[in-house]
């Protein structure tokens, strides 16, 4: 089989899929031998694989042999030894799309040890490296799109969240880590941990949090958005960051007594009622924009559950 010209490999996989044929195809793709084909018809390496799997005359066999073949390739992959940007991107895409068992440990080890992704050109190195890092974090996310039922029984999950907590200390990774820790439930929407990160790094993390919330269709999106809004009242920079990020996405905030009316870009309107002393203070002063430090103290006493 391995002596076949590459132009026959698609047909081989369609009619008689095997682990060896998949390994050959995956290595060919990673090695750049299918770049023009991917560019012309599929747009991405994962879509090439998806399409060949879907077109197979023996679909279950095709998917099974693919899974084994990809695992075999990933298990022998050393991200530190690869210096080709496209090759790394292709592998990260495949790991994200198909989550082979070895993928998590390979990437976790690389990222945790401060591995640096390659770049082709010194002039564009910054952006290429950043995109590969984004792909790497997305690949790790694919293994834990949400927290497992019993997190303490998953050492890998514990390691992953510790890695994210460490990323909070870095300028580059802080925003992403904050989003993920909230998404995984490690940060409570109204918790002090999230509040602390927001108040210290509002300009960096608030746009990322809003982008995540507005770009996804989570069922709890509106309540999370309300909690985030309240968290952002802790400082002027956070308030401004929230408002700017919302407006950038086509949203608005309207303030009245007792509540804020947040309208997001798709037209959804969310009411954030204020409670307790804060409402009293608001009613008295009617100066929401200038709550400043007084608002900070009061808001710290409010939880989302109380307001709803």
């Amino acid at each position: 089989m391995l002596d076949e010209p590459i132009e026959n490999i698609f047909e081989t996989l369609r009619t008689s899929p095997s682990v060896e044929a998949w390994v050959f195809l995956i290595r060919s793709a990673i090695g750049g031998d299918l770049d023009d084909t991917i560019d012309r018809y599929y747009g991405s390496v994962e879509d090439l694989m998806h399409t060949i799997r879907a077109n197979s005359l023996h679909r279950v066999l095709s998917e099974t042999t693919f899974d084994i073949g990809l695992e075999r390739v990933v298990a022998t992959w050393d991200p530190a030894a690869v210096n080709n940007v496209k090759s790394v991107e292709f592998m990260l895409r495949l790991i994200t799309a198909f989550t082979p068992p070895s993928g998590f440990l390979k990437l976790f080890g690389f990222v945790a040890n401060g591995g640096i992704f390659p770049s082709n050109d010194s002039e564009t190195s910054g952006s290429e490296e950043t995109v590969l890092e984004e792909f790497a974090w997305n690949a790790l996310r694919a293994y834990f799109p949400t927290a497992p039922e019993a997190p303490d029984k998953f050492p890998a999950f514990d390691g992953y969240t510790r890695l994210l907590v460490n990323e909070l200390q870095t300028h580059k990774g802080r925003a992403y880590a904050c989003v993920r820790l909230l998404e995984l439930g490690h940060f409570k929407p109204d918790g002090a941990n999230l509040g602390e990160v927001i108040s210290e790094h509002a300009e960096q993390v608030v746009p990322a949090l809003l982008d995540w919330l507005l770009g996804n269709e989570r069922r709890d999106r509106d309540s999370l958005l309300a909690s985030l809004y309240l968290q952002c009242q802790t400082s002027k920079s956070a308030r401004i960051a929230f408002q700017e990020a919302l407006e950038k996405d086509g949203g608005t905030i309207e303030l009245t007594d007792y509540r804020a009316q947040i309208t997001i870009g798709d037209g959804t309107s969310i009411t954030v009622p204020f409670a307790g002393e804060l409402s009293y203070e608001l009613t008295k002063s009617k100066e929401w924009q200038d709550l400043s430090e007084r608002g900070y103290i009061l808001l710290n006493e409010i939880t989302w559950e109380e307001t709803t």
Partner: peptide, 11 residues
């Protein structure tokens, strides 16, 4: 737009 840039096709 940035939120789509580094995501795989299915996402």
């Amino acid at each position: 737009k940035p939120r789509y840039r580094a995501a795989i096709s299915s996402a």
